[in-house]
C-alpha cells in the first residue's frame, strides 16, 4: 500500500503541474491578485500552494499570456493579473485540447472496463 501511495504522489505531482495552468487561466478573465486566486481555486476544489502559484503567474506574465498591474489604492499594494489578448486565445485552445484529452482518456478507461 505504501508503495502505491508513493507512486500516486509522484504521478499526481506531474499531472497537476499541467492542469494548474488551465485552472489559473480559467479564473483570470477578471483581474485577480495572487492570494485571491489561491482562495478561489481552493473553494472550487483545486489546491495550489502560493509558493507554486506566484512563480507561475510571473512566468505566464513573462510569456505574454498574462498582463499585470499594481493596485496601490487599497490598504496594501497588490499586483493584479489578467489574461492578455494572446492569453485569451491560448486559454481557448488549451481548453479544447484538454477536452480532447479528457474524452479520449475516458474512452480508453471505459473501454478497458467493458473488456473485463
Amino acid at each position: 500500500m505504501g508503495d502505491a501511495k508513493q507512486h500516486i504522489d509522484k504521478l499526481m505531482q506531474e499531472l497537476r503541474r499541467g492542469t494548474i495552468t488551465i485552472g489559473v487561466l480559467s479564473q483570470l478573465s477578471e483581474p485577480q491578485y495572487g492570494y485571491s486566486l489561491v482562495t478561489m481555486l481552493d473553494e472550487k476544489g483545486i489546491q495550489v500552494e502560493p509558493g507554486t502559484l506566484y512563480p507561475l503567474l510571473r512566468r505566464l506574465e513573462k510569456q505574454g499570456i498574462l498582463d499585470s498591474k499594481w493596485d496601490t489604492n487599497e490598504s496594501r499594494p497588490r499586483k493584479y493579473y489578467l489574461l492578455s489578448e494572446t492569453g485569451k486565445e491560448v486559454f481557448e485552445l488549451l481548453v479544447a485540447e484538454w477536452k480532447n484529452i479528457v474524452s479520449s482518456l475516458n474512452h480508453l478507461i471505459e473501454d478497458e472496463g467493458e473488456g473485463k
Partner: peptide, 17 residues
C-alpha cells in the same frame, strides 16, 4: 531587475496569509 517587484508581492502575500 525582478527583486523589488517580487519582494513587494511576497510581502503582500505573507500579510494576506
Amino acid at each position: 531587475s525582478q527583486r523589488e517587484d517580487i519582494a513587494e508581492e511576497l510581502r503582500g502575500l505573507i500579510e494576506d496569509m
